[in-house]
Computed example of a mutant assay.
Amino acid sequence: MKSFLTHQQIASLVKAIQSAEEHSTGEIRVHIDSNTETRDAETAFEVFKRLCMNNTADRNAVLFHVNFERKYLTIIGDIGIHEKVRQSYWDQLHDYITGEFAKGNYYKALESAILKTGLELKKHFPVTGENPNQLSNEITFS
């Protein structure tokens, strides 16, 4: 199996998630899937639910579900953030990420997408008081 991200890059992505969530009540997760044989969003939705991403207070969690081997990416924004940014935002972000993936820029694409998403979350869900981390920032794998 080809390695698409180094351990250092994975650790840096966790820091990018922490930074992106700092000024927002939103939550961001990255899941790297190397087991799924199909290229459909159903698997990503299962991961979204398994990671309890649909349980945030403002329903503003975002999942980047990536399968590098299958060249597949699904971005899921829960209903709270999706209502604010609409499908066109996710489509543009998806196009950017997959364009960078095609150039082999896996880390750059994910880091940039995480930070861009953080800006949108900050715009629509700014911190107004305490800001507990509702979900782990770790990168998950299957």
Rank of each mutant, 00 (worst) to 15 (best):
K2T: 02
L5Y: 01
Q8L: 03
I10E: 06
S12G: 11
L13Y: 08
V14K: 15
Q18V: 07
E21N: 10
E21H: 12
E21A: 11
T25K: 13
G26Y: 12
I28G: 04
I28R: 05
R29K: 14
V30T: 07
H31T: 10
S34L: 08
S34K: 11
T36V: 06
E37V: 09
R39G: 01
R39W: 04
A41Y: 09
A44P: 08
A44Q: 04
A44F: 05
E46N: 07
E46S: 05
F48S: 07
F48A: 08
F48N: 04
K49C: 10
R50N: 14
L51G: 03
N55I: 09
N55Y: 11
N55F: 13
A57V: 06
A57M: 07
R59F: 09
N60V: 10
L63S: 02
L63F: 02
F64M: 01
N67Y: 01
N67C: 06
F68H: 09
I76P: 02
G77C: 12
I79C: 05
I81W: 01
I81N: 00
V85P: 09
R86V: 09
R86F: 14
R86Y: 15
Q87R: 10
S88H: 06
Y89D: 04
Y89G: 01
Y96F: 14
I97Y: 06
T98V: 13
G99D: 11
G99L: 09
E100I: 02
F101W: 12
K103T: 06
G104D: 08
Y106W: 09
Y107R: 02
K108L: 04
L110P: 01
G118R: 11
G118L: 14
G118D: 13
L119A: 14
E120S: 10
F125G: 01
V127E: 03
V127G: 04
T128C: 12
E130F: 08
N133F: 06
S136I: 02
E138F: 08
E138R: 14
F141Q: 09
S142E: 04
S142W: 01
